[in-house]
Amino acid sequence: MENQATSKSSLQIVRRFNAPQSLVFKAFASQEAFAEWWGPSGSQLTLINFDFREGGVTHYRLDSGGMVMWALFRYREIRQPDSITFISAFADAGGNIRTSPFPFDFPLEVHNNITLTETGGVTTLKLYAEPVDATPEQEKTFRELNASMNQGYEGTFKQLDTYLLKLQG
């Protein structure tokens, strides 16, 4: 029962940044900017894919003290300049969603919404996060996204198969 309550819970964080809204938005939207700050300090970020648009996927790798992990964002709704909605998940090297590296209950996918409001040059960022399976509708959207993603990877793997067969031919 306790686990159930935990997995249904949500998270809200409010932070203020001494920067205009456009700059904070760009920190998420521009590959160059994102690569500058994303990833915990002391870790090395490698952007395998960066595609900031609705339906796009950003897939990255983090190296930290000999450990490697992959994760991804799937952007669902982007409203410039004040709202970004995306699903975040742990992944493998191929961009397939994987369970978290934590040996406890962590949702497979988390639905995140970031909103930005600016007052006098100070931007307030609100992050709201909840597990993807919170509502049936979210689940449905995610399944659809997942299906199209899998098709994409299947195509890639088919090409790899063809290539490998040719090599061995």
């Binding site: 964080i13 406890f104 962590f106 996060a129």
Partner: peptide
């Protein structure tokens, strides 16, 4: 054990980094 605490800690670290980045580029 609660994912929310883990996730909160994760994002707070990210936002610290974002704060540094924004200060630096400005």
């Amino acid at each position: 054990a609660g994912w929310v605490d883990q996730y909160r800690q994760f994002w707070n670290t990210q936002f610290d980094s974002l704060d540094h980045y924004l200060n630096r580029i400005q």
